[in-house]
């Protein structure tokens, strides 16, 4: 991986079989509470013949992350490799990132009394948070830091059909092009959500 690598997710909707293992693996790996699902498999155009497809969505680590733009307390930061992370100690749980997000990624565990929203929780691309890498504090707040250990994020590692890929965007688009070419039929539209994910590049 080059130093200019920008990390992206890609879910091949021709391969996704809606098995939900990415979602389960994520929840288990990071010991998420019930009611919080950082990754979710959704089926679009359900029941419409020829148009139905499933895809896996989480935080897509957008290039011009809208969440980062609207946060009133500036709790977001974007790593050099493009991973969008946030500081739960700074987050006030206002919910603005959810209104801005194109993917419905930010989650709000309802842990306080009278239904107050806790700090926002979202996919970290298994890269933890601002706390010391692999410390127990980081694990407690953000889950595993598999990126620091050189491992593939849990969801992509688990995907049985290799529909869900993660890595340098150059590598990912090479694989994507190869797959499209090898299919050799039909019209391939851009993957769901890519226009948002790679906006204004």
């Amino acid at each position: 991986m080059s130093e200019l690598a920008k990390m992206k997710f890609y879910c091949d909707d021709q391969r996704c079989i809606e098995c939900n293992s990415c979602s389960v693996a994520c929840a288990e790996a990071h010991e998420l509470p019930t009611g919080v699902s950082r990754r979710k498999v959704i089926t679009l155009n359900e029941g419409i013949f020829g148009k139905e497809f499933s895809t896996s969505v989480a935080c897509m680590h957008c290039t011009d992350a809208p969440c980062e733009q609207v946060c009133p307390v500036d709790c977001f930061y974007i790593r050099e490799d493009g991973i969008v992370l946030h500081d739960k100690e700074i987050c006030i749980g206002c919910g603005y990132c959810l209104y801005a997000c194109p993917f419905g990624a930010p989650q709000f565990p309802r842990d306080g009394a009278f239904g107050t929203k806790g700090a926002m929780d979202k996919c970290t691309m298994c890269a933890g948070g601002p706390e010391e890498t692999n410390s127990s504090a980081e694990r407690e707040l953000y889950g595993q830091n598999r990126i620091a250990e050189g491992k593939v994020p849990m969801c992509a590692a688990m995907c049985s059909t290799k529909a869900l890929l993660v890595g340098d965007e150059q590598e990912i688009s090479t694989i994507y092009r190869k797959r499209v070419a090898s299919r050799g039929k039909g019209v391939q539209s851009a993957p769901y959500g890519w226009s948002e994910e790679y906006s204004k590049q």
């Binding site: 946060c71 009133p72 307390v73 500036d74 709790c75 700074i90 987050c91 006030i92 749980g93």
Partner: peptide
């Protein structure tokens, strides 16, 4: 204070 939350450093106070 919430609108200018970033200037107060966010966290417990703004919460």
């Amino acid at each position: 204070i919430m609108i200018f939350g970033a200037n107060f450093g966010g966290g417990d106070f703004v919460r």
